[in-house]
């Protein structure tokens, strides 16, 4: 079992989360050239090591997180809120 440190809920089993994909992908503007869209939609770095990825705490607070994890050892280096507004609000609260 992986354990993800949710900023709202604390350290929780990954069975409570849904995996939502590669967080290193940034989508280009709508009028960007086709190549940029092709790369964002279809191509992945797929590294064997540290990976930034989205997880959603579906069965907890519901927040989308960015988790940094080693995809070979499953070591988790940290989790932050994916939404920048929420992330800064959390910082203000702390």
């Amino acid at each position: 079992m992986l354990r993800i440190p949710c900023p709202f809920c604390g350290l929780r089993d990954h069975a409570e989360f849904d995996y939502e994909g590669d967080a290193t992908v940034t989508y280009p503007p709508l009028d960007a050239p086709e190549d940029a869209w092709f790369e964002a939609v279809f191509l992945r770095e797929n590294p064997r090591g540290r990976h930034r990825e989205y997880w959603r705490h579906t069965q907890g607070c519901g927040a989308y997180l960015i988790v940094e994890r080693d995809v070979t050892t499953h070591e988790i280096f940290g989790a932050e809120l994916a939404h920048p507004g929420m992330a800064s609000a959390m910082e203000g609260a702390a």
Binding site: M1, A15, Y19, N46, E53, V71, H74
Partner: peptide, 13 residues
């Protein structure tokens, strides 16, 4: 298991 992995072992869920 649904999350990216290069580990030749799975998780409990």
């Amino acid at each position: 298991d649904m999350h990216n992995s290069y580990a030749q072992a799975g998780t409990l869920p």
